[in-house]
């Protein structure tokens, strides 16, 4: 068999995770959950959340989808409009009401959305730069150093990995093509 250049295929696409309403509700929560310096990144944050939610177990995906609709409609009795249409002050009050009650489900939902959105917020390049996190150049630097300084040891370990070292004498030898 000839050696072939390895070309990795694109990862499997995640299943669809969020409807348009879900995205709208999440977008309205960006000013509530993310720091002010991230508000202009709302579209990117929501797009990232959709990817993350898409990779979650089906049960979590469905629960979040249902939770977002419930959250949106649940504002009507208190504020006479859906959550994604609330002004900033009321949006803040309404989200806080979920964070602190009235049932554990409300609390878990608010906590979960807060976690997911915080994750997506700090995956944005602008936010990573803000906190001084730049692993790319660091990885390149240390990788280069390792391959240069420790080349002999790396080759030695590669050889060791493949070297014959039978646990027991061979049971039966076979010829493989």
């Amino acid at each position: 068999m000839a050696e072939a250049t390895y070309q990795h295929a694109a990862p499997l696409p995640p299943p669809p995770s969020l409807g348009s309403l879900g995205r709208v509700v999440l977008r309205s929560l960006v000013p509530v959950i993310c720091p002010p310096e991230a508000h202009h990144l709302a579209d990117a944050i929501v797009a990232h959340m959709a990817l993350t939610i898409g990779a979650s177990p089906p049960l979590v995906r469905h629960a979040l989808g249902a939770g977002l609709i419930t959250y949106d409609l649940g504002a009507i009795p208190f504020h006479r409009r859906r959550a994604h249409k609330l002004d900033p002050a009321r949006a803040e009050t309404y989200f806080a009401s979920w964070e602190h009650g009235p049932t554990p489900l409300h609390v878990q939902f608010a906590r979960g959305i807060n976690q997911l959105m915080s994750l997506s917020c700090y995956e944005q390049p602008a936010m990573l730069e803000r906190v001084g996190y730049a692993p790319g150049p660091w990885i390149a630097e240390v990788t280069r150093k390792r391959l240069t300084v420790f080349a002999a040891e790396i080759r030695k370990q590669d050889t060791q990995i493949l070297a014959p070292d039978p646990l027991r004498p061979g049971v039966r030898r076979k010829e493989r093509v």
Binding site: P36, A38, S118, V131
Partner: peptide, 17 residues
């Protein structure tokens, strides 16, 4: 990384920042 750490905090908004 920052994203995983931010995820673990209960803070939000300006406090998180």
């Amino acid at each position: 990384p920052p994203s995983v750490l931010a995820m673990s905090f209960p803070h939000r908004g300006a406090q998180l920042g």
